[in-house]
Design a protein around this nucleic acid. Structure first.
Lengths: 246, 246
DNA sequence: AACATCCTAATGTCAGGACAAACTATTGAC
DNA sequence: GTCAATAGTTTGTCCTGACATTAGGATGTT
């Protein structure tokens, strides 16, 4: 059952060895070289074939198990998960998701201000009294069709924001370029009925279904960087995710 | 800056050392002994204090970073994340969630049958033609108030299902008792408007907002065990989750 | 033929060491 | 006084080695 998953490990590359293995196995699964349900060779042999140590091999497989591509069972072996399950929900922006999908999103900035944060926003972003934030509302369209209505608050002591850049690129892209390294975000997904303000902007009728999302994002220094409330047309958007049992 | 997080490591315990560390640090964070934003001692000293090796200590911290409680930065140190962010979305059932919350869920089984799977269900569960499945619809209430309307399909070659057990406990509990070890699930969350069938059952009006969830669960052998379509009253339920950047 | 027991193979856990890379803060030079 | 080089601290990566635990098949017995 020699799997012959012809991986190439480049020891001079700056990218870590275990990550090269992750990428290689991911590729093998996506190209169909590793079929769903098939068993991999055992860790020790695989490590030996690639001239890697077992801990390195294990670290790679750990990542793949966590991302839901592989399933391990003690005493048995490691299997490719037998499904068309796709990528888990990642910490990314709508703009990135759409861009990666080949669509071309556009953004209308409906309002923009640099104002003092009220109590609820200060609490969400853990800011002291009197702190100022950027507050803006955007309408995201794809293919000319409105998809999302987004209201956000961003702390102003990180990078400068303006209407023009928000209209031309995604918020997370701007912040990343400004040196923000996002680490985690907590979000809540629910549903609501389109009201008289939302409906015309999203080119739907009051009373139609909307998906709602509230999110607060934290950077690698532990600062709350951004919080926002988004609504999406339910007929055009849903959240897909893969949950992995630890 | 001796943190003195008085951890007790029991080497005779059957639970892994790194997991004991995870639990200890989690507890220290939740009790407030480790304050948000505070820095931990470095890995090497911590490991030495507990008479553990650095890899074991690192494995524990890896878990905590992945779950979003800690943030590490090379050359700087490890910090407790400065927020009230809570547990990520886990692979659990609604029944478990409600029970853990102290609520007492009840279940009405609206329909139950053991029937041949149609094409779409066979595809979702990857079953061969002619295979039979359990198909049932349940109404979940908490405190007498209807919360969720759930339609599920379960393969029948794992454990026997009947109306009585579905009425008295959660589906995932039954399956787990039947020897199923869930490994991952892929789900999609969206929104819709209550129709004339759903509204009276959920004691709401047609046209009100519902959260929808479609899920397919896979066990540790890679089999698709269960697929279902659930709707929740939007005013009573939403999905909360924490996303962690890898 | 049915059952309990042993054996093997595979993953799970843990140790100890070595070097690399990144960030901070200090030191030094201009 | 400002800026750049440098040293030190901390996490990141990788190695070798060892033993424990579990699942499942093979073996032997009844």
């Amino acid at each position: 059952m020699a799997n012959q998953l012809n991986l190439q490990i480049d020891r001079s590359s700056p990218i870590p060895l275990y990550h090269q293995v992750v990428q290689g196995i991911e590729a093998a699964i996506h190209t169909g070289l590793l079929e769903p349900g098939s068993r991999l060779e055992n860790e020790i042999d695989l490590a030996a074939q690639l001239n890697l140590s077992r801990p390195t091999m294990r670290k790679a497989m750990d990542e793949l198990v966590r991302s839901g591509l592989l399933v391990r069972k003690r005493g048995v072996g490691t299997q490719v998960v037998s499904s068309q399950v796709r990528r888990p929900l990642e910490l990314s922006s709508l703009y990135d998701d759409l861009s990666n999908n080949g669509s071309k999103p556009t953004t209308d900035v409906l309002s923009f201000s640099h104002e003092e944060a009220d109590a609820s926003i200060r609490k969400a972003l853990q800011l002291p009294g009197g702190a100022k934030v950027y507050h803006f509302t955007r309408l995201r369209k794809v293919g000319g069709k409105p998809l999302a209505l987004m209201e956000n608050w961003v702390r102003d002591d990180i990078t400068a924001l303006d209407e023009a850049s928000l209209a031309s690129q995604g918020l997370y892209g701007i912040l990343r370029n400004g040196g923000v390294n996002f680490r985690l975000a907590s979000q809540r997904i629910g549903a609501m009925i389109a009201n008289d303000y939302q409906a015309p902007l999203l080119e739907t009728t009051p009373g139609s279904a909307l998906v709602t999302m509230e999110r607060t994002a934290v950077d690698d220094t532990g600062r709350m960087v951004e919080t926002g409330h988004h609504v999406y047309r339910a007929d055009s958007y849903s959240f897909e995710m893969t949950l992995v049992q630890r």
